[in-house]
């Protein structure tokens, strides 16, 4: 059951991240599908990949985006 919830969270998180007008929020919300996918990998019998994805998808990539937003502008024009 928990797999299905994670899938729904992934899709909703992706859509929500793209709907934000505040880019910093969008950047942080990018981590939600990233983390959900990492948990999903764990349930799909891939713990090694889940570890990598948890670091890359839910920490490194949102930080990259947040840095880019910080260096550019925060609100979509």
């Amino acid at each position: 059951m928990i797999e299905y919830i994670l899938m729904i969270v992934t899709i909703l998180g992706a859509i929500l991240a793209l709907m934000q007008r505040d880019l910093l929020k969008a950047a942080i919300l990018t981590g939600v599908p990233g983390a959900a996918i990492a948990f999903l990998y764990q349930y799909l019998l891939a713990p090694d990949v889940a570890l990598t994805q948890a670091i890359v998808g839910s920490a490194i990539i949102p930080v990259f985006f947040a840095l880019a937003v910080y260096k550019t502008r925060r609100v979509e024009e």
């Binding site: 793209l18 880019l23 969008a26 990233g34 996918i37 985006f65 979509e76 024009e77």
Partner: peptide
Amino acid sequence: NLIKKVIGLAFIGDGVNL
């Protein structure tokens, strides 16, 4: 928005990995 474009690209990569 370019940042949003790149966020979209990240999702494509995630999707293919999944």
